[in-house]
Simulated assay, not measured.
Amino acid sequence: MKTVIVTGPGTTAVREVPTPSAGPKDVLVRMRASGICGSDSYYISIGGIPPRQGETPLGHEGAGEVVEVGAEVQGVAVGDHVVINPIAPGSGMIGSGGPQGTLSEYLLVENAEVGTSLAIIPDDVPFDVAALNEPMAVARHAVNRTGVKPGDKVVVFGAGPIGLGAAIGFKLSGAQSVVVVDLLPSRLEKALAVGADAVINSSKEDVATRLTELHGTGTTAFGKPRAGTDIYLDAAGAPVVVQTALANAKHHATIGVVAVHKKPVEVDFGAILDAEVNIVTSMGYPTEIFEVTKEIAENWEKFEVIISDRFGFDDAQQALVTAATPGAADKVVVTIG
């Protein structure tokens, strides 16, 4: 079979490797789609991950069709459509330093267990949308970390894949109003398409003024006027986002950070004491990897909007280049077979 690997700093290749066979506790999946994550670009830039430096298989956002089932595996049948948990116990993390990646024609799911290492998805969900399961679990964990309640008023900064997924998650959790902030009109259009109640173009509009218009007025503990927003989520990773959220947060508002900040962010805690804000951070998906699967199945048309570019497997290396080029694409998915 063919698989895509990192061969050195900045280089990749498509290699022919033996097709794995399922043992009694395993499932063999014919991969049908794999999303590309920013971490894939990072692995390429550094030449792979030890101990497979220079020989790291790529891809951890996968969906496919079961073609072989071990004799001891229960709840899975040949022909089932499935999504994969890349960090489930096995011989290594899928696509993040382990011996396999989802940018392959086949993937061996070791010690296969429904609800732990894989989940079955309805046949009517397109494979490319199903491949969003892993990043949408990241977005759902961010939503869960903020403690959103029905009726909450929310603002999401950043309309990339995680921000859009979070916007969907907040609405499904009963948020009264979800506002999305970004600089790019095309991204803001997507935010409205996935169900955001309003959008703010921060390059043209004053965020604080618009949030007050949309969410009403709140106060700090000492009565200083603030926007009536209950939850701020940073899915952008720009220092100005954190600073804007802190400057506008009302008493007991929650500020969640799911974005990766590559540099320290200066915070004046003295200036925000009377807001008594709750600051939470979010990483990965401790429980959400398959909690989000049902949401995708029931709302796949909304999640499909998140995909910006599709490439065939023969063009997988070009897909990686496109995904790594700033401004070239938002969410790239490679279709396989």
Rank of each mutant, 00 (worst) to 15 (best):
H215W: 09
H215C: 15
D234Q: 05
F222C: 00
V260R: 07
T229E: 04
V240H: 03
K204E: 15
A245D: 15
A236M: 04
S203M: 13
G216N: 02
A238E: 01
I231T: 05
H251E: 06
A208V: 09
A227K: 07
H261A: 03
D268V: 11
G256N: 11
A238C: 00
A253V: 09
T254C: 14
V242C: 06
G256W: 04
N248F: 00
T212I: 07
E213P: 13
G218M: 04
A208R: 15
A249G: 12
E266I: 13
V241P: 02
G256I: 08
V241A: 01
H215R: 04
T219S: 10
A249Y: 02
K262A: 10
T229D: 02
Q243R: 05
L214F: 09
A221Y: 07
G223L: 05
A259P: 14
A235M: 09
Q243S: 13
A227Y: 06
T209G: 00
V240M: 12
A238L: 13
L233M: 15
A259T: 10
T219Y: 02
G223A: 03
D230V: 09
D268Y: 10
V267W: 04
Q243Y: 05
T220Y: 04
L214H: 09
G237F: 01
V258G: 09
A249V: 11
E205R: 15
T244D: 06
A245E: 07
H261Q: 05
I200Q: 14
K250Q: 11
V265L: 08
L214I: 15
G216W: 06
T254E: 05
D268C: 00
L214C: 14
H252R: 15
T219A: 12
V240G: 05
T244W: 03
V199Q: 12
L214D: 08
T219M: 00
E205V: 13
D230E: 11
H251C: 11
Q243K: 08
L214W: 04
V199M: 07
G218V: 07
H252P: 00
E266M: 10
A208G: 13
K224G: 05
V207I: 15
V267C: 09
T254K: 08
G237L: 04
H215V: 00
V257P: 04
H215M: 11
V260G: 00
G228R: 02
K263S: 14
E205I: 14
G237N: 02
L233R: 03
A208Y: 04
K224H: 09
A227D: 12
G228N: 10
T219K: 01
Y232N: 12
R226C: 06
D197T: 09
A249Q: 08
T217H: 05
T220R: 08
E205P: 14
I200R: 13
K263R: 15
T217I: 08
V257S: 13
T254R: 14
K263G: 00
T254A: 10
K204W: 03
A236C: 09
S203W: 06
V207K: 13
G237D: 03
